[in-house]
Every structure is written in C-alpha cells, then in structure tokens.
Design a protein around this nucleic acid. Structure first.
Lengths: 205, 205
DNA sequence: CCCGTACGATACACGGGCGTATCGGATGCG
DNA sequence: CGCATCCGATACGCCCGTGTATCGTACGGG
C-alpha cells in the first residue's frame, strides 16, 4: 500500500508549492494577468508539473483562495486564544486587541478583492464566498464573545453582530490601505468598531 | 479656427465610445483579461482607433474609471435633489430613501473592486482613489445633511460620518451582492446605516 | 533485483494579441 | 477647386503563452 510519507506526499508538496507561488504572483500581477509559467517559475517547476496537478489557472486560483482563507480563519482563531488577555477594561480595549491580532495584509486584500470580482462573475462561485463568510463568523464569533464577556458584555444578536463586524472590517480596511499614513482614518476605524459592538451588546446583569 | 462641433468633436465621440465599451468588457472579462480588440469590437472600431486615442489599456481603464465615478457622484447628487422628499419621519426613513436612490450596480462593483486592487498595485494611483473618496464625501455630505435636517438631526462630526458611511456602504454592498436573495442581509444593512447615522447626529434643539 | 507506474521535464505546433507602419478618405481651409 | 491634415482602417511581423504529446527517471512492489 502506498506509503503516505512518500507516494502521495511528494505530489502534495509540489501542489502546495504551486499554490504558495500562486498567491505571490496573483498579488503582484493580478489574477487576469498571471500566466501559468510565472507561477511555475516561482515555484521552481515547469509547466509539466502544473498540468499534472491542475487543469486551469481558475482551478488553482480557487484552490489557493480556499486554502488561504481557511488558514487565515484558523490562524486568527488560535492567535486570539493564545494572546487573549486576562481582562479588558473597556470595549475599546477589546477592539484594539482584536485589531492588533487581525493582520492588515495588502497582498491578501488585493487577491481577495479580485477573487470577489471573479466570483461574482462566475455562477456558482457566490456560494463558495457565502460559505466562507459563514465560516468566518462561525469560527470567530465565539472568541469575540468570550473577549467581550471579560468586560461584562453580553452579545445580543450574534448574527447581526457578525455581519456588521465583517462589513465594517472590510469597508474600513480599504480606507486604511488607500491612505496608509492617515492616523485619523485608523482612529475612526476603531471608533466605528466600538460603536457597532456596543450596539450589539448589553451589560450582563 | 477649428469648429468644435466637428473638428475635435468627432474625435471626442470615438474616444467616448471606446470608454463606454471598455466598461462593459471590463465588467464581463475582468481588467486583466480584457484585450484591446474586444473593446474596439464592442465600440465598432478597429485597433487603429484605439491607438490613436490611447496608448495603453491601463490609460483607458483609468480614464473610464475616473469618468464613470465622477458621473456616478454627480448623478447621485442630482438624484438626491430631485427626489428629495418633503419630510422624513425618522432616521430610518431617511436611510431607506438614500439607499433607494443609490444604485446597486454589480457590474460597477466588479470594475471598482478590480480598479482598487489595480490602484493599490500601482504607485501614485492611491492618490487618485483617495481624491475620489474625498470627492464623494464633499458632494454627498451636504445633501445627506439636508436630508437629516428634515428629521431635526444635526450632524456632529461631518468627516467621521462621511468615512463611516462609505465604509458601511461598501462593506455591506459586497454582502448584498454575494447573497442577493437574503432579505435579512439587506435589513441588517439598513440597521447598520441607521446606527451609524444616529451615532453621528444629535437632535437640533 | 527488476519491472511498472506516475510525476515532472522537454519539445512542438498553434493561436492570438500586440504595436507599428502604411494607407485611404473625409474634412477644413486657402 | 485643390491641397494639407488627421483620423481610423488595413496589413504585417513578432512574441508569448498555451496545451498536448512524448520522454526520462525515481520510487514502490513483487
């Protein structure tokens, strides 16, 4: 029987190297301008390797996005748990902690934005995105809830809070990326988060 | 001296037809996968016309985006003024009116998203985007302020409200586009707007 | 120890998009 | 009425990326 350490493992490794390379090229060139050769070059392969692992760039793009976004969510989950403070003195403090944990990754934003556009253009891909959004909320809402509980806050409407947080996160992220040196923009970002959180929580008795 | 009706007018017309065609192709194919020929075909020209008016697709993309976003802002401005109600009974009503005026244009969202990604990738283009954002707020905040005044609301912090509205608009728009049939998402969108507006206004004595 | 299998490299033919150079013809002016 | 100009069409050569078909080889099984 095939030894997993070698037989299929090597294949998985090259596949992974292709996926990793893809993120970089997509971020640099944009999805539509990325070529198979660029990805293979960066991964240290030739196109032979690519076509033996994927059938099209679209497929690679999807695989890369699904994997990275899943990794991001789980990474965020553990980061929250590991760095979770013993106590927080206010909602603002909780928000600031959370924003310190959530990376501001411009490359990833670019790729995400293009993926969203691509998904909206491709029937059936909306589901993938919607599912991912649900996954984000499912994974992160509990830890956020625990974080807020430290401040004696009880979440009132879980789903509404989740949707609002994602919307505010994404909406303000662009603004921060467009004007990276504007402190005011960042400060208002925090304010907006605080507002949203306070509107969706109450003091627990 | 050159008659503006003919001399440069014809040139401007073909240029405009190219710009208009570009929007459609960009929306359908994505920026990176759009070819000069596709744009020319849709506009009813050959590449000769293109290269006599633009030097690259990037240039056309930029021209198209600047024009369309400017048009959108001014169109919004007049739409607000023309359809401005005589009175509004609540902040929620004001928000609902505003959202009814602001078009949800998926094609335009796709193009915008890709343009943002493109701009973040192209040094110096951030400025263009930042300037556009300021333009949006400059043009729309006054009418929003008048709208809210009908309900006896006075805007407390103009700039913060502007930034928050744009962020919430963009952030929730994606959610609505990804799940177009989910009424709850739309309802929460309105809720979030109401929350933001109320947080940035006060009853004027 | 040898053979089969499959992974990834190499080779090849093809298509298509690009940019330029040249052309035709309409328009405006003297 | 004829000339100059300029816009958009046509024609050309070029490069690059694609996808497939073939090959070599290293690993795994018997």
């Amino acid at each position: 029987m095939g030894d997993l350490r070698t037989v299929s493992h090597r294949r998985a490794v090259t596949r992974q190297r292709l996926v990793d390379a893809a993120l970089g090229v997509f971020a640099e060139q944009g999805f539509g301008r990325t070529t198979v050769e660029q990805v293979c070059d960066r991964a240290g392969f030739t196109r032979g390797a690519f076509y033996s692992n994927f059938s099209s760039l679209d497929e690679l793009f999807l695989a890369m996005w699904e994997q990275r976004s899943a990794d991001m969510v789980s990474g965020l989950h553990t980061a929250f748990e590991e760095r979770m403070p013993d106590q927080v003195g206010s909602v603002r403090e909780a928000v600031e902690f959370a924003l310190a944990v959530i990376p501001v990754d411009e490359d990833w934003y670019r790729v995400s934005a293009e993926f969203t556009a691509h998904a909206l253009r491709t029937p059936g891909m909306r589901w993938v995105m919607a599912e991912r959004e649900r996954g984000i909320q499912r994974a992160l809402l509990p830890v956020i809830e625990r974080l807020l509980a430290m401040n004696g806050q009880e979440v009132v409407n879980r789903d509404a809070l989740g949707q609002a947080l994602v919307a505010v996160h994404d909406g303000t992220l662009v603004q921060c990326l467009v004007e990276p040196d504007d402190e005011v923009v960042h400060a208002r970002r925090v304010d907006l988060f605080v507002l949203v959180v306070e509107a969706h929580t109450k003091e627990s008795r």
